[in-house]
Computed example of a mutant assay.
Amino acid sequence: MNALQDSATMLDRNIRHTLRSPDMMIMTVALPVIILLMFIYVFGGAMSMGRGAYVDYVVPGIILLCAGFGASTTAVALSTDLAEGIIDRFRAMAIARSAVLTGHVVESVLRNLITSGLVIGVAMLIGFRPTADPLRWLGVVGLLALFIFALSWLAAALGLLARNPEAANGFTFVFMFLPYVSSAFVPTESMPTWLHGFAENQPVTPVIETMRGLLMGTPIGDSALLAVLWCAGIALAGYLGAGALFRRRTRA
């Protein structure tokens, strides 16, 4: 119970920090929206499926791009806390050490679910027309939350591994890169053979295909199981790595 209360306190602290820095949330939303508009209005007309159909195709990938960019800020936030010495102050207090990490991760999930919702709203304004019923929407939210949760734990580990916030920001570049080499923006079949194999077997593709299937009614196949397994594996690796690195970085 004490650990839960401490985690809630850390969550409240991180939410307050976010509310006092609205520029972070603006950037988290603005970058995916700009990319969405660029792909739709610059590249969409050249797609064989047509601009209208391309909106429905590309939005799930943009949602994950938004989630990845937002989750990466967890690494910078943790690295900043270490650099500024606030973690040392927490160590002198009677609080659970795990609460520091849990507070950052849960805040990341809540913040990025909100920003992803805003991106979906903008997408609807420019023509996105999902066919999902309430149950499928619940599945979309659940999968998105799991994806953000997994990336946030991985980002926490990378933030603790980095020696400064700048390095932490660089370490999370892969979060922005992976969606581009997946089925987010073009079918993987259109890629060169040597790239097609990687795009098909990396963690983002099954998550995107599952979300696309839930939102638009396209076939999901085994993508849902693969998506959950990838997210669970990334979350476990991030959790174990973050815990070990936190103990090492805060060792007396």
Rank of each mutant, 00 (worst) to 15 (best):
L138T: 15
T80E: 11
M124A: 14
S108Y: 02
T73R: 10
L82W: 11
L161E: 09
V106I: 15
V122K: 04
M124V: 11
L138G: 15
L138A: 15
V106R: 02
L125D: 00
A132V: 11
E84K: 11
D133Q: 13
V109F: 05
A71Y: 02
L125V: 15
W137E: 08
S108Q: 12
N164W: 00
V100Q: 13
L101A: 14
V119T: 12
T102M: 12
A96T: 12
T74I: 13
M93Q: 14
L113H: 07
F128Q: 03
A96Y: 00
N112M: 08
V105R: 08
A92Y: 04
L118C: 12
A96V: 05
A132I: 08
I114E: 00
A92E: 04
V100K: 06
I114L: 15
M124H: 00
E107R: 08
G117K: 05
N112T: 03
N112D: 13
L135M: 13
D88A: 13
S152N: 04
A99I: 06
F90D: 05
T102K: 03
E84Y: 08
R129D: 11
L160D: 05
G121Y: 01
S72D: 11
H104K: 09
V122F: 10
T74P: 03
A94S: 12
W153L: 08
A71F: 11
A145P: 01
A75S: 14
A162N: 02
P130T: 10
A155S: 14
G142Y: 05
N164R: 07
V76S: 13
T74L: 09
L101Y: 05
V141F: 13
G139W: 08
A145D: 06
G121Q: 09
V140T: 11
G103N: 02
L118I: 15
L125P: 00
S152K: 02
V109M: 12
G117L: 02
S79C: 15
A156H: 02
G103D: 06
V106Y: 00
S72L: 01
L146V: 04
L160M: 07
V106F: 09
V106G: 03
T102F: 10
F147T: 14
R111I: 05
S116Y: 05
S98Q: 14
A156P: 02
G127S: 13
T102Y: 07
L113N: 07
L146W: 06
A150L: 09
S72P: 04
F90R: 03
A92I: 03
G159L: 11
W137C: 05
L151F: 13
V109T: 09
L154W: 11
M93E: 10
G85I: 07
A132D: 05
V119H: 08
V105C: 02
M93K: 09
A155L: 09
T131D: 12
A94Y: 00
V122M: 08
F90M: 12
V109S: 07
V105F: 03
I120M: 13
R89N: 13
F147H: 15
L135S: 11
V119S: 07
G127K: 04
S79G: 10
H104E: 10
R163V: 01
L113V: 13
A155R: 09
V122Y: 03
R129N: 10
L160Q: 09
L154N: 07
L143I: 14
S98V: 14
L151M: 15
S152W: 03
L160C: 02
